[in-house]
Simulated assay, not measured.
Amino acid sequence: MDLTLRSYRPENLPEMIEIWNQVVEQGDSFPQDTPLDAASAQAFFAAQTDTVCALDEGGRVVGLYILHPNSEGRCGHVANCSYAVKADRRGQKIGRRLVEDSLKRAREAGFLRLQYNAVVVTNERAIALYEKLGFTCIGRVPKAFRARTGEYRDTYIFNRAL
């Protein structure tokens, strides 16, 4: 599949909001529990170090990620990312392309490491991908995520040098 990965543009926001909200509403991987609207999405995506879209051959947004510091100040050299792939396009290696691109862009932005703070233990596809791409699980946090069902699930912390 031919994908173009580039920083988002304002005209991408409607598709980005749709994809992001699909993941939020699923309630099994993102910490957010409130969908984005046009105003909150514009502010949210603009506040990141970078927000990148994956566009298919027709120029449609099929995935995106946000890149930003994991913390601030003396810990600001560690990046964090969140990824979202359009529901009907999952399983097509779009997520892999997003992660690989984020590693490159994080390095170019001066980050030294990339860390995921809350990978839900039931997110098996993401866990397998992160491990294939050289991330190490450095911890498990019991009952750190509240799923849409109300069930509490453990999360992993994954980290990788850039």
Rank of each mutant, 00 (worst) to 15 (best):
52 V>H: 02
5 L>D: 05
125 R>W: 04
77 H>W: 12
63 G>M: 09
4 T>Y: 02
126 A>G: 13
10 P>V: 07
132 K>H: 15
128 A>K: 12
128 A>S: 13
98 L>N: 02
87 A>D: 10
70 N>F: 15
92 Q>W: 05
125 R>V: 15
58 G>F: 00
19 I>P: 03
12 N>S: 11
7 S>D: 08
72 E>R: 15
33 D>M: 06
5 L>K: 08
25 E>Q: 14
125 R>E: 14
133 L>T: 06
125 R>I: 13
63 G>Y: 02
18 E>R: 11
64 L>I: 13
126 A>Y: 06
84 A>V: 10
118 A>W: 09
42 Q>S: 14
137 C>T: 09
66 I>S: 15
141 V>I: 14
103 L>K: 00
81 C>G: 11
140 R>Y: 05
137 C>P: 07
109 A>W: 00
72 E>T: 15
31 P>L: 13
127 I>Q: 07
73 G>F: 11
34 T>I: 15
47 A>V: 08
54 A>V: 01
107 R>Y: 11
142 P>M: 05
92 Q>C: 09
19 I>L: 04
90 R>F: 02
87 A>N: 10
96 R>F: 02
11 E>M: 10
82 S>F: 07
141 V>D: 03
24 V>F: 08
108 E>S: 08
133 L>Q: 14
50 D>Q: 15
69 P>C: 11
40 S>L: 12
106 A>R: 00
14 P>N: 04
43 A>P: 06
47 A>I: 05
59 G>H: 04
76 G>V: 14
64 L>H: 15
32 Q>H: 14
111 F>S: 00
101 D>S: 13
4 T>S: 12
33 D>G: 06
131 E>D: 14
128 A>Q: 13
101 D>W: 02
58 G>N: 02
5 L>N: 04
54 A>H: 01
87 A>S: 12
94 I>N: 00
111 F>E: 00
65 Y>L: 12
22 Q>D: 08
54 A>L: 09
14 P>R: 01
140 R>W: 04
80 N>C: 14
1 M>H: 02
116 Y>P: 03
136 T>D: 12
133 L>C: 07
80 N>Q: 14
119 V>Y: 06
113 R>P: 01
20 W>A: 13
45 F>A: 08
134 G>I: 01
97 R>K: 15
129 L>G: 11
68 H>K: 15
1 M>A: 04
65 Y>W: 11
18 E>Q: 08
7 S>E: 12
109 A>C: 13
59 G>D: 02
141 V>Q: 10
133 L>S: 05
67 L>S: 02
17 I>L: 07
19 I>D: 02
142 P>C: 04
99 V>I: 02
